[in-house]
């Protein structure tokens, strides 16, 4: 199966047609929702926070960030700002009237927010695209470093970021995580269902100064298939095989609860019909 990343640049790949197909597929909705919940559980937010969503697409992850704690979003409802390189994806997010603010921007060009803006950041299935440079004047390493440097600065001390992505191979996995470490992050890679075709890779990033003091092992320690790449513990590999049943069960249960309430399949239900009017 060919990777979309190898066929076209992201803004061309996610055109109107592909963006709609993507967003309306119930299979994709379920996978993106599960991964967002997994990422949220790694962020461990305890109260409503300001979150950046990188490559937010049509807002599948954002809708979950806007949900309340009772509806399965830890610490929610959060306020989020999302950006994406595809205007077609953003157009669908607009149609769905997502709560978050949206931007058209390229993560490879940086993160244009003042220092310490965000409590946390999330990115679901997007940053592997940074490994494909669109033009000859740009290199994947340059784009990755602009992105991670910008992200690092935009997070407050003690903040965290979780980026689920689809590395093409081990080399790409390493290229991405070492770019994050070079930007100053404490970093760890967590893999769910490693070695299967459902394998999911989460890059968990911490900014020093908080309660964990940048020590990523405090976040993913003892988890299944964890690779600690904290700068100080040079590429120490912790390879504990432990079933994550509890956590998965939790996600599935929440998902079912949410689906029953129609939160995922009909995400805007709570706010449809809210007033939108021009003022001043």
């Amino acid at each position: 199966m060919s990777r979309p990343e190898d066929t076209l640049p992201p803004d061309l790949f996610y055109n109107d047609n592909e963006s709609r197909k993507y967003t309306t597929s119930s299979r994709i909705q379920k996978i993106q929702s599960d991964m967002t919940h997994r990422a949220l559980s790694l962020l461990r937010l305890k109260s409503p926070s300001l979150i950046l969503d990188i490559g937010c697409g049509s807002g599948l992850s954002g809708e979950i960030l806007s949900a309340s704690d009772q509806d399965g979003t830890p610490g929610g409802p959060h306020v989020w700002i999302g950006f994406d390189i595809s205007s077609s994806m953003l157009a669908i997010a607009l149609e769905k009237e997502v709560e978050g603010d949206l931007f058209l921007a390229d993560a490879g060009q940086g993160v244009p927010f003042r220092a310490g803006t965000f409590d946390a950041a999330i990115s679901i299935s997007a940053i592997q695209w940074l490994c494909n440079a669109e033009s000859s004047e740009e290199s994947p390493s340059g784009r990755l470093s602009r992105f991670f440097n910008g992200l690092y600065a935009s997070l407050r001390r003690g903040g965290r970021a979780v980026c689920q992505f689809y590395p093409k191979n081990d080399e790409q996995k390493k290229m991405v995580s070492s770019a994050a470490v070079r930007a100053g992050f404490g970093a760890g890679l967590l893999e769910d269902d490693p070695g299967t075709k459902n394998a999911k890779t989460y890059l968990v990033l911490t900014v020093g100064g908080g309660d964990l003091d940048g020590d990523i092992t405090g976040v993913v320690k003892g988890m299944d298939g964890v690779d600690v790449i904290d700068q100080r513990k040079k590429a120490r590999v912790v390879n504990q095989r432990r079933e994550m049943k509890g956590s998965k069960g939790w996600i599935i249960k929440k998902k079912e609860q949410m689906e029953k309430k129609g939160k995922v399949v009909k995400p805007t239900s709570k706010y449809t019909g809210r007033k939108r009017r021009i003022a001043f």
Partner: peptide, 8 residues
Amino acid sequence: EGIANFLL
């Protein structure tokens, strides 16, 4: 439509 264009 509320979306800022930050593509450079």
